[in-house]
Simulated assay, not measured.
Amino acid sequence: MAEASGVSRATVSFVLNDDPRQTISAATRERVRDAARELGYVPHGIARALREGSSRVVVLHADRGLEGGFSRSYVRGLDEELAEHGHLLLVRHGHALPEATRQVLDTIVPRAVLRLGEVSVRGHEPVGQDGENGFAAGAALQIGHLADRGHTRIAMALPDHDVPSADARFGFAREAARRLGLPPLERLVVPGPREAGAAAVEEFLASHADVTALAAFDDDIALRSLAALRDLGRRVPEDMAVIGFDETEHGSLATPALTTVHLDAEALGRVAARNVLGVDTAGPAPAPVRIVVRASV
């Protein structure tokens, strides 16, 4: 391949391994890749893993309860950025036994192991940026949007199943309320079955009649809340304002259409991939979080 492209063996290796430490012109890189295609070169993954000490696979654990729009966009950005640097993404969904996880890791010897839930627990990704594009900023924007519309007694609507990031997200929202001088946030768990959701909301409102707004953990929980309020004869937003989080198409189809928080998850996934690979993270920065204003607030 070096002979066919007219470069040294070392240069061929640098190009095929996409070594970020080497400065090689675009023309030379393309010449080497053209030669590889013409010669039908296929990298030997096992041999390369032995040489490099790990495979070119990155494992992402996606915890249960994080299957929304953020997760899909984040995975897409992470996957595409890794592919551009010759790496593959393996996504594992839900809870896995430690023995099964160890077997996977021992077999694959991945370049890195990530956990999607850690992004929301930390508040923003990557660590060290200005925090305008992550979960903490989204929670502050969510509570601030309600406060700007005169709501001072707010509850956070949470899922009824164990989500590792739920407590962290509630903490971000609670801190946002404190900074705005609002009373402490209330917690409202909204279960999945429609009848159970309505019963939970009814019981909550019976003892928290002064609450006028619900800040939901995500759009799915917001939609559960909308259904429960409708079943109870409560008007949205006249009787109760509802705001979602992690914009999904479903929210735009609800009645009333759901106001929600949008995060630039795809860009965050790309930044995470660059951090894992140790390549330059320069490029389009994740956009700041923003409110998608609709009719539910």
Rank of each mutant, 00 (worst) to 15 (best):
L263T: 02
G233I: 15
V279Q: 04
R29T: 04
E118G: 00
P183A: 11
G278R: 05
L114W: 12
A176F: 13
A215N: 06
E203G: 08
A27T: 08
G244M: 03
L141V: 14
V242G: 12
S25H: 10
I291K: 05
R72K: 11
G269I: 01
R234V: 14
F217Q: 01
P191V: 09
L229S: 04
G65E: 07
I46G: 06
E118K: 00
P191N: 06
H208Q: 13
A137T: 14
E118P: 00
Q103H: 13
S8W: 06
V12Q: 02
A147E: 03
V276D: 00
I154Y: 02
S54C: 13
A206E: 10
R9D: 12
A176L: 11
H124W: 05
R115W: 03
R234P: 14
F70M: 11
P237K: 12
D239S: 09
V57M: 14
P284K: 09
L232E: 13
F170Q: 01
L60E: 06
T260N: 10
A49K: 00
D220L: 06
G244V: 03
A199L: 04
R178T: 04
A155S: 08
G86H: 11
V127Q: 12
E266N: 04
H93A: 10
D19K: 00
A27E: 15
A137H: 11
A35P: 13
A209E: 11
H44E: 11
G68R: 06
S252K: 04
T248F: 05
H93E: 15
S54P: 00
L253S: 11
V293F: 02
T107F: 08
